[in-house]
Measured scan of single mutants.
Amino acid sequence: MAAAAAAGAGPEMVRGQVFDVGPRYTNLSYIGEGAYGMVCSAYDNVNKVRVAIKKISPFEHQTYCQRTLREIKILLRFRHENIIGINDIIRAPTIEQMKDVYIVQDLMETDLYKLLKTQHLSNDHICYFLYQILRGLKYIHSANVLHRDLKPSNLLLNTTCDLKICDFGLARVADPDHDHTGFLTEYVATRWYRAPEIMLNSKGYTKSIDIWSVGCILAEMLSNRPIFPGKHYLDQLNHILGILGSPSQEDLNCIINLKARNYLLSLPHKNKVPWNRLFPNADSKALDLLDKMLTFNPHKRIEVEQALAHPYLEQYYDPSDEPIAEAPFKFDMELDDLPKEKLKELIFEETARFQPGYRS
């Protein structure tokens, strides 16, 4: 834990890192770190609560700039109880001085990944967590956004079992017609939660990839272990087919990539493993919904509104309290091709509203 900075004593240090967030945020305490930044909790002297502050230093890398800009653009436009918001952003007053960006968010005690390492969940908890994931996802999908990296560590939890989806750095506007060349190379989302079509096709992607990830998360809540822990690309596919069985001819016809289709045709026939054999203690309604989410063919996979209306979630289902976005989200430009200098300018502009004396 960093010592509390005395008023006016300059930035606090946390594990050798400068955290320049005073005077409003003090009493910093280390939480963890990701690929390009550290997260601390801090005391907000204005709202009198502890908050989470993520320090991001992305400006050396085009990919990190892209992810940072995506996350900020999306989260500043989203407003939903099951999606983490941005409360404040701290950065230098000029673009030349801006080396880091500090993002202030609600402090959540833990995440689903940490929880599943230590606790076996009751059916009631599984049901409530799944409902909140789908409630947040309904809003995301209504904005025409794909999260693309749903996994237990991106689901934040607090002691009252509130759940918030975080990390929109890989999110995209849904565009089933656009052929994202190089899709697989830039697709760094965790393999275990990846839909089979991501490994088999490169053309376009749809909201059904997020539903697949939610199915993987439900299976993990039922058993405290990942359902498809593939060691590499082909191993991942083999794990999936080992449980779902061989795809039907109709399902194979959806695979545009001939090499991928021929690979699947070359494999020995596998039978589907019954879900109640894998999860003998699970609620039968939970397994019915799991089956509809972990469907090989993305066109037959359940959609988020149908999933919310499934009998497993009937005690929570309330369409009048499951809000959607006001308007579909649009990125003005494809960020993939922009140089990091341009992305830095866009991050600077996007964060201006939090600067003292800002006038829109």
Rank of each mutant, 00 (worst) to 15 (best):
L107H: 07
P280W: 05
Q17T: 00
K270V: 04
G136T: 04
P58E: 07
L156M: 12
V173W: 05
D337A: 13
F19I: 15
G10Y: 09
H239N: 15
I90C: 13
L121E: 08
Q105Y: 15
I72Q: 09
D149F: 04
L146G: 04
T351E: 05
A219L: 04
R135P: 08
N158W: 07
S213P: 04
S153R: 13
G22E: 12
E197N: 06
C127N: 13
L289C: 10
V304R: 05
V104C: 09
I86Y: 07
Q62V: 13
L237M: 13
R261A: 05
I53M: 12
K272I: 15
C216H: 02
I133A: 00
A3N: 05
T26E: 04
L290I: 09
K55P: 05
L290C: 01
F78Q: 09
L146N: 02
N47W: 13
T94I: 12
L287T: 04
Y205N: 15
P247A: 01
G10L: 10
N123T: 14
G37R: 13
D167H: 08
K138Y: 10
L76Q: 14
L237S: 04
N238T: 13
P339W: 06
H120R: 12
E350G: 00
L76K: 07
V18Y: 02
Q97S: 11
L252M: 14
S246R: 13
R301I: 14
N154C: 05
G245M: 06
E250C: 08
R194E: 13
M333D: 12
A2P: 11
S320D: 10
S360C: 11
V21Y: 07
D336L: 07
I126S: 11
G242L: 09
R79S: 14
Y205F: 14
D20A: 08
S29H: 01
L294C: 11
A260V: 13
Q105R: 14
C127R: 14
A174S: 14
M13G: 12
I209K: 11
F329T: 04
I165G: 04
V49R: 14
I86F: 15
Y358F: 14
E341Y: 07
P328A: 11
K340W: 02
Q306R: 11
N262T: 00
N158Q: 09
D44Q: 11
A9S: 13
Y317V: 00
I74Y: 10
K270Y: 10
L116I: 06
E303A: 11
K231S: 02
A327T: 11
A307F: 02
Q97E: 14
N271H: 13
G215P: 09
I211G: 09
D20C: 05
E341G: 07
I74H: 02
G32C: 14
I95Y: 06
S360F: 11
F348R: 03
H310C: 05
E81P: 03
Q132H: 15
F228H: 03
L115M: 11
N144K: 12
Q249T: 10
E33C: 00
K117L: 10
